[in-house]
Design a protein around this nucleic acid. Structure first.
Lengths: 166, 166
DNA sequence: CAAGATTGATTCATCAATCTTT
DNA sequence: AAAGATTGATGAATCAATCTTG
C-alpha cells in the first residue's frame, strides 16, 4: 500500500490555461502573445516544484516534511510547534499533524517544554537529522541546476523582473 | 461553519528557504547571491497564485473548481469525467470528487452518456456558466496586472529566460 | 480483459472549536 | 481572558482497489 509521498501544488497540472482574455479590449489587436504570460510563468514554477518534489522523494521526504526538519536543523534545538507554524507561515493544526507523521516515522520526537507546560517542542532525532541532510543535498542539486540554466547576467536580470512582478 | 475555500499550493508559505548551499564548494566564494534563485522564483510564483486564488474567491470559486467549469465552457458540451481528468492532467478520482462538490453546489450536473453506459458526463448548469464567466473576468484582471507589470521587451525577455529554465 | 467511474486510505492545507495552562 | 496545542470538518491532490460495462 505505497501511497503518494510527494504531492503536487494545487495549481499543478492545472496550468494549462491558455492566456486569452475573456473580453478582448480591442477587436483584433494583439492576438499573438507578446512574451511571457501569467500562466506560462506559473507553468515553469510548477515544473521547478515538481523537480524539488522528485528530488526529495528520492530520500523519502515530501517538501512539507523536509521544511520542518530543516527548521529544526537550523535552530539546532527543539522548537515549539507554534514557532514551527510561524516559520512555515501555516496553520498550527497543520504542524500538529505533520509532526504526528514525522514522529510516527521516527524523524522527530515530541518533548515537553522545560518552562511552559502548555507548549510542546519538536526535537530532531538522529534519523531526522540524517534525512534532512540528504534532503538538502538533493535540494542543492535542483538549485544548482536552476542556477546553471542561466548566465549570471541573466539571473540578475531575472531578479529584476521578479521584483517588478511580485 | 465557513471553511477554507481557496487553498494554497503545497509549497506556499514554504518558500522561505534561504538559497544557501548545504556544502559550499568554495570556502568563502560567492556568499552574496548573484541574481534570482530557485526559491526566489518560486516565491513570486506563489504570490501570483495567491492573487489568482483571491480573485476567484471573490466569486466563490477555487482554482480547481474554476478549471473544471472553464473546460466545460470551452467544450460547449458535456464532457466525460475521464476527459476532464485528461484535460487537467490529474487523477480520475480527483475529478469524481470535484464534480461531487460542484454538483452539490449546483454548478454542474451529471448526465448519462448517450452511447457509452459506463461513462458519466458533467454538464454546465446556468449557475455554473454564470460563475465561470465571472471567474474569467477575475482571472483577466490578474493576467492584465501581470502583463502591466512589465514592458513588452521585458515580457519577451522573460519568456526567453523561462524557456531556458523550464 | 480493458476502460469508465467510484470508493477508500493517505498527505497536506485551511478554519472553527475545544482543552489545558499561563 | 489569552496563548499553546489538539481535534474535527472540509478541500484538493495522490494511488490502490472495486464495480460496471464494452
Amino acid at each position: 500500500m505505497v501511497l503518494d509521498e510527494v504531492g503536487k501544488p494545487i495549481y499543478r497540472s492545472a496550468m494549462k490555461q491558455v492566456d486569452e482574455v475573456a473580453i478582448p479590449l480591442k477587436p483584433k489587436a494583439a492576438t499573438h502573445e507578446e512574451g511571457a504570460t501569467l500562466f506560462s510563468f506559473l507553468e515553469v514554477a510548477d515544473q521547478l516544484f515538481e523537480r524539488i518534489s522528485e528530488a526529495l522523494g528520492k530520500v523519502g521526504l515530501s517538501y512539507a516534511k523536509y521544511e520542518i526538519l530543516k527548521h529544526l536543523q537550523d535552530a539546532d534545538a527543539p522548537l515549539t510547534l507554534g514557532a514551527l507554524a510561524e516559520g512555515q507561515h501555516c496553520a498550527r493544526s497543520n504542524i500538529t499533524q505533520l509532526v504526528d507523521r514525522l514522529e510516527t516515522e521516527g524523524m522527530v520526537r515530541r518533548v515537553d517544554d522545560p518552562v511552559d507546560r502548555r507548549a510542546v517542542r519538536a526535537q530532531l532525532t538522529p534519523v531526522g537529522l540524517s534525512l534532512v541532510q540528504e534532503g538538502s543535498i538533493q535540494i542543492d542539486v535542483v538549485r544548482a541546476q536552476f542556477a546553471a540554466a542561466l548566465t549570471t547576467p541573466e539571473r540578475v536580470e531575472l531578479a529584476r523582473l521578479l521584483a517588478k512582478i511580485g
